[in-house]
Amino acid sequence: LQLFIKTLTGKTSTVEMEPSDTIENLKAKIQDKEGIPPDQQRLIFAGKQLEDGRTLSDYNIQKESTLHLVL
């Protein structure tokens, strides 16, 4: 599924993920695209901070969801 990652600067990146992927996997993919180390990334979806060990489906993240990346 395609996700949009929006940064505080207003920049939006697109990443392709599976519902079974963990937040950790997602942060690794963001690191590949943006060069931001996972330990500096905080991802927010629906007002919640996402935890590394959980999966996208745990948070009911659907295709074309927008996640907010806070550093």
Results as ranks from 00 to 15, higher is better:
residue 57 S to V: 07
residue 67 L to Q: 01
residue 38 P to A: 15
residue 27 K to E: 01
residue 14 T to R: 11
residue 38 P to G: 08
residue 30 I to A: 01
residue 70 V to L: 13
residue 47 G to I: 01
residue 1 L to F: 14
residue 9 T to D: 14
residue 30 I to P: 00
residue 11 K to I: 11
residue 41 Q to D: 01
residue 54 R to V: 06
residue 65 S to L: 04
residue 18 E to Q: 13
residue 38 P to T: 14
residue 39 D to Y: 12
residue 62 Q to P: 10
residue 44 I to G: 03
residue 57 S to K: 12
residue 37 P to C: 05
residue 18 E to C: 09
residue 2 Q to C: 08
residue 56 L to Y: 01
residue 9 T to S: 13
residue 58 D to L: 03
residue 36 I to W: 14
residue 14 T to Y: 12
residue 16 E to N: 11
residue 41 Q to F: 15
residue 26 L to A: 01
residue 29 K to L: 10
residue 45 F to P: 00
residue 65 S to K: 04
residue 65 S to F: 07
residue 4 F to I: 11
residue 12 T to Y: 11
residue 37 P to H: 12
residue 34 E to A: 09
residue 17 M to V: 13
residue 67 L to S: 01
residue 11 K to Y: 12
residue 5 I to D: 02
residue 17 M to E: 00
residue 57 S to H: 10
residue 22 T to S: 08
residue 43 L to Y: 07
residue 33 K to T: 11
residue 32 D to F: 11
residue 65 S to P: 03
residue 51 E to Q: 10
residue 27 K to L: 03
residue 15 V to Y: 15
residue 49 Q to A: 11
residue 17 M to K: 01
residue 59 Y to F: 03
residue 47 G to S: 04
residue 35 G to Y: 03
residue 68 H to M: 14
residue 52 D to Y: 05
residue 11 K to R: 11
residue 3 L to H: 01
residue 55 T to V: 07
residue 39 D to S: 13
residue 45 F to C: 02
residue 15 V to T: 02
residue 2 Q to F: 12
residue 16 E to H: 13
residue 38 P to R: 14
residue 1 L to I: 15
residue 63 K to S: 15
residue 68 H to T: 14
residue 64 E to P: 05
residue 45 F to S: 02
residue 56 L to C: 02
residue 36 I to G: 03
residue 49 Q to L: 15
residue 40 Q to M: 11
residue 1 L to Y: 11
residue 29 K to M: 10
residue 62 Q to I: 12
residue 12 T to M: 12
residue 22 T to P: 04
residue 23 I to T: 04
residue 20 S to K: 08
residue 20 S to F: 12
residue 41 Q to G: 03
residue 22 T to L: 09
residue 6 K to R: 11
residue 49 Q to N: 11
residue 56 L to P: 02
residue 10 G to Y: 04
residue 44 I to T: 08
residue 64 E to H: 15
residue 50 L to A: 02
residue 66 T to A: 05
residue 64 E to I: 05
residue 55 T to S: 09
residue 1 L to D: 03
residue 70 V to I: 14
residue 52 D to A: 07
residue 27 K to N: 00
residue 37 P to A: 09
residue 16 E to G: 07
residue 38 P to L: 13
residue 68 H to P: 01
residue 2 Q to A: 08
residue 28 A to E: 09
residue 23 I to D: 00
residue 53 G to M: 07
residue 9 T to K: 11
residue 21 D to I: 03
residue 53 G to A: 10
residue 6 K to Q: 11
residue 20 S to E: 11
residue 63 K to I: 06
residue 3 L to F: 08
residue 36 I to V: 08
residue 4 F to M: 07
residue 24 E to F: 14
residue 40 Q to N: 08
residue 64 E to G: 15
residue 13 S to C: 12
residue 41 Q to H: 03
residue 38 P to F: 13
residue 46 A to Q: 15
residue 12 T to G: 06
residue 19 P to T: 08
residue 22 T to Q: 04
residue 45 F to T: 01
residue 57 S to T: 08
residue 8 L to W: 15
residue 17 M to G: 05
residue 55 T to Q: 08
residue 15 V to E: 02
residue 54 R to S: 08
residue 32 D to H: 12
residue 48 K to F: 10
residue 49 Q to D: 13
residue 46 A to N: 15
residue 50 L to W: 01
residue 15 V to F: 14
residue 32 D to L: 13
residue 55 T to L: 11
residue 36 I to P: 04
residue 52 D to E: 08
residue 43 L to N: 00
residue 2 Q to E: 06
residue 25 N to C: 08
residue 36 I to R: 03
residue 57 S to E: 12
residue 69 L to G: 00
residue 32 D to Q: 14
residue 33 K to N: 09
residue 55 T to P: 06
residue 8 L to D: 12
residue 62 Q to R: 09
residue 71 L to N: 06
residue 58 D to P: 01
residue 64 E to R: 09
residue 30 I to T: 00
residue 23 I to C: 02
residue 26 L to Y: 00
residue 64 E to K: 10
residue 63 K to E: 11
residue 61 I to E: 02
residue 49 Q to P: 11
residue 4 F to E: 04
residue 11 K to V: 10
residue 25 N to T: 13
residue 31 Q to Y: 15
residue 50 L to S: 01
residue 45 F to A: 03
residue 18 E to Y: 14
residue 41 Q to A: 05
residue 18 E to P: 04
residue 14 T to V: 14
residue 14 T to D: 04
residue 49 Q to W: 14
residue 65 S to R: 03
residue 17 M to I: 11
residue 1 L to N: 04
residue 44 I to L: 11
residue 19 P to V: 09
residue 40 Q to S: 09
residue 65 S to T: 08
residue 8 L to S: 14
residue 13 S to T: 15
residue 20 S to T: 12
residue 5 I to T: 01
residue 28 A to S: 10
residue 35 G to D: 05
residue 69 L to I: 06
residue 34 E to Y: 15
residue 45 F to K: 02
residue 56 L to S: 00
residue 53 G to W: 14
residue 20 S to M: 10
residue 21 D to F: 03
residue 47 G to R: 03
residue 63 K to L: 06
residue 36 I to L: 06
residue 66 T to E: 08
residue 9 T to Q: 10
residue 8 L to G: 10
residue 31 Q to T: 09
residue 67 L to N: 01
residue 10 G to W: 03
residue 34 E to H: 14
residue 60 N to L: 07
residue 22 T to N: 04
residue 26 L to D: 01
residue 49 Q to M: 13
residue 56 L to R: 00
residue 61 I to N: 02
residue 4 F to G: 02
residue 54 R to G: 07
residue 25 N to S: 13
residue 37 P to Q: 06
residue 43 L to A: 00
residue 63 K to G: 14
residue 56 L to I: 10
residue 58 D to N: 05
residue 16 E to R: 11
residue 1 L to R: 03
residue 31 Q to C: 09
residue 20 S to H: 12
residue 50 L to T: 02
residue 40 Q to P: 02
residue 26 L to K: 01
residue 63 K to W: 10
residue 33 K to V: 11
residue 35 G to T: 02
residue 15 V to P: 00
residue 42 R to Q: 12
residue 32 D to E: 14
residue 58 D to V: 04
residue 57 S to C: 04
residue 46 A to W: 10
residue 40 Q to D: 08
residue 21 D to P: 00
residue 63 K to N: 15
residue 58 D to Y: 15
residue 35 G to I: 02
residue 39 D to T: 10
residue 33 K to M: 15
residue 47 G to Q: 04
residue 28 A to D: 06
residue 37 P to E: 08
residue 33 K to W: 09
residue 9 T to F: 13
residue 58 D to R: 02
residue 70 V to C: 07
residue 47 G to E: 04
residue 31 Q to W: 15
residue 32 D to I: 13
residue 59 Y to C: 02
residue 4 F to Y: 13
residue 9 T to A: 12
residue 3 L to V: 09
residue 1 L to G: 04
residue 30 I to V: 05
residue 67 L to M: 05
residue 59 Y to I: 02
residue 2 Q to R: 15
residue 29 K to A: 10
residue 42 R to K: 14
residue 3 L to Y: 03
residue 53 G to F: 11
residue 50 L to N: 00
residue 66 T to L: 11
residue 65 S to G: 06
residue 30 I to Y: 03
residue 48 K to I: 14
residue 11 K to S: 09
residue 26 L to T: 02
residue 62 Q to T: 14
residue 55 T to I: 08
residue 71 L to Q: 09
residue 15 V to H: 05
residue 59 Y to H: 03
residue 13 S to R: 09
residue 22 T to V: 05
residue 29 K to E: 04
residue 43 L to V: 07
residue 13 S to A: 12
residue 71 L to V: 13
residue 17 M to L: 07
residue 53 G to E: 11
residue 42 R to V: 15
residue 13 S to D: 05
residue 52 D to P: 07
residue 57 S to L: 11
residue 36 I to Y: 14
residue 49 Q to F: 14
residue 28 A to I: 13
residue 11 K to C: 08
residue 64 E to C: 12
residue 2 Q to L: 15
residue 3 L to A: 01
residue 27 K to C: 03
residue 15 V to R: 00
residue 50 L to Q: 00
residue 50 L to M: 06
residue 22 T to G: 03
residue 11 K to D: 08
residue 54 R to A: 08
residue 60 N to Q: 07
residue 33 K to I: 15
residue 43 L to F: 07
residue 1 L to K: 04
residue 32 D to R: 10
residue 35 G to L: 04
residue 38 P to S: 14
residue 5 I to Y: 08
residue 35 G to S: 05
residue 34 E to N: 11
residue 14 T to F: 11
residue 15 V to N: 00
residue 18 E to D: 12
residue 70 V to D: 07
residue 51 E to L: 09
residue 4 F to C: 05
residue 45 F to L: 05
residue 15 V to A: 03
residue 69 L to P: 01
residue 68 H to W: 15
residue 25 N to Q: 14
residue 31 Q to E: 10
residue 69 L to E: 00
residue 7 T to Y: 14
residue 47 G to N: 07
residue 24 E to N: 09
residue 61 I to D: 02
residue 6 K to T: 12
residue 7 T to R: 12
residue 55 T to H: 06
residue 47 G to M: 04
residue 58 D to A: 06
residue 12 T to C: 10
residue 65 S to Y: 06
residue 53 G to K: 11
residue 67 L to E: 00
residue 53 G to T: 09
residue 67 L to F: 04
residue 61 I to M: 06
residue 60 N to F: 09
residue 21 D to C: 04
residue 66 T to R: 04
residue 57 S to G: 09
residue 64 E to N: 15
residue 31 Q to F: 15
residue 2 Q to G: 04
residue 54 R to M: 13
residue 34 E to T: 15
residue 11 K to M: 10
residue 20 S to Y: 13
residue 50 L to Y: 00
residue 6 K to H: 10
residue 70 V to Y: 14
residue 36 I to A: 04
residue 20 S to L: 09
residue 71 L to C: 06
residue 24 E to A: 15
residue 19 P to D: 09
residue 39 D to V: 08
residue 25 N to M: 15
residue 35 G to C: 04
residue 69 L to T: 01
residue 26 L to M: 04
residue 27 K to I: 03
residue 46 A to V: 06
residue 38 P to W: 12
residue 41 Q to V: 10
residue 18 E to M: 14
residue 45 F to W: 10
residue 34 E to Q: 11
residue 41 Q to S: 04
residue 45 F to R: 02
residue 49 Q to R: 08
residue 48 K to S: 09
residue 32 D to M: 13
residue 6 K to N: 05
residue 10 G to F: 04
residue 54 R to H: 13
residue 65 S to W: 04
residue 27 K to H: 02
residue 22 T to D: 03
residue 29 K to T: 06
residue 60 N to I: 05
residue 52 D to F: 03
residue 33 K to A: 12
residue 7 T to C: 13
residue 1 L to E: 03
residue 18 E to L: 14
residue 52 D to W: 03
residue 28 A to G: 09
residue 59 Y to S: 03
residue 55 T to E: 03
residue 29 K to R: 10
residue 21 D to M: 07
residue 44 I to A: 05
residue 58 D to F: 15
residue 71 L to G: 06
residue 59 Y to R: 00
residue 46 A to Y: 09
residue 40 Q to A: 08
residue 60 N to A: 08
residue 64 E to L: 13
residue 41 Q to M: 14
residue 10 G to C: 05
residue 65 S to N: 07
residue 41 Q to R: 01
residue 16 E to K: 08
residue 17 M to N: 01
residue 2 Q to T: 15
residue 32 D to K: 13
residue 65 S to C: 05
residue 63 K to Y: 10
residue 71 L to A: 08
residue 12 T to R: 06
residue 8 L to K: 11
residue 25 N to D: 13
residue 48 K to L: 12
residue 17 M to S: 05
residue 28 A to N: 10
residue 8 L to E: 14
residue 39 D to C: 10
residue 59 Y to K: 01
residue 2 Q to S: 10
residue 43 L to S: 00
residue 54 R to D: 05
residue 4 F to Q: 07
residue 71 L to K: 08
residue 38 P to N: 05
residue 3 L to C: 02
residue 55 T to R: 11
residue 48 K to G: 06
residue 67 L to R: 00
residue 31 Q to H: 14
residue 2 Q to H: 12
residue 14 T to C: 08
residue 61 I to Y: 03
residue 9 T to C: 13
residue 28 A to W: 11
residue 14 T to E: 07
residue 10 G to V: 02
